[in-house]
């Protein structure tokens, strides 16, 4: 069965870009539009990987990761953060929050595939 990736981004076009690239790689996709939506969807879905934007209304990416990591059953789910920043501070902060890795926007499908390969069995 195809592995499932949940993408969390408040921008529909960004979600569609991810969907286009990820479905080409053979993953199933669940989409959420912000942290709160993602938390709700995580109660019914069990994605193998979470890819989340940082800047979102209601609950941002850091808030989402912290919430997800608090739940024991999600402690080991890999999480990739989408960031426009290349600075180490932002990456550090993502890791402190509990992210597994990051993808710097804009990303090519190859870059996306490489990041996923590093965190997903």
């Amino acid at each position: 069965m195809a592995q499932t990736i949940m993408t969390v981004d408040d921008s529909p076009s960004m979600r569609m870009l991810l969907r286009a690239a990820l479905s080409k790689m053979g993953y199933s996709i669940i989409e959420a539009e912000d942290g709160v939506d993602a938390m709700e969807k995580l109660s019914n879905h069990r994605p193998d990987l979470l890819i989340t934007d940082i800047n979102m209304p209601r609950m941002d990416g850091f808030g989402l990761i912290e919430n997800v990591r608090q739940d024991d059953s999600w402690r080991n789910m890999p999480i990739l953060v989408l960031t426009t920043e290349t600075s180490d501070e932002k990456k550090q902060r993502a890791r402190m929050a509990g992210a597994t890795g990051w993808i710097v926007k804009p990303f090519s499908p190859d870059k996306l595939a490489a990041a996923i390969r590093r965190v997903l069995h």
Binding site: M39, E40, M59, G63, N67, W74, N76
Partner: peptide, 21 residues
């Protein structure tokens, strides 16, 4: 053995965080 052994437990309602305005 990190695979969760219990079935997906429902996530409790998102606790308010700093991020939640």
């Amino acid at each position: 053995q990190t695979e969760p052994k219990k079935p997906a437990a429902p996530i409790p309602q998102a606790a308010p965080t700093k991020a939640q305005a």
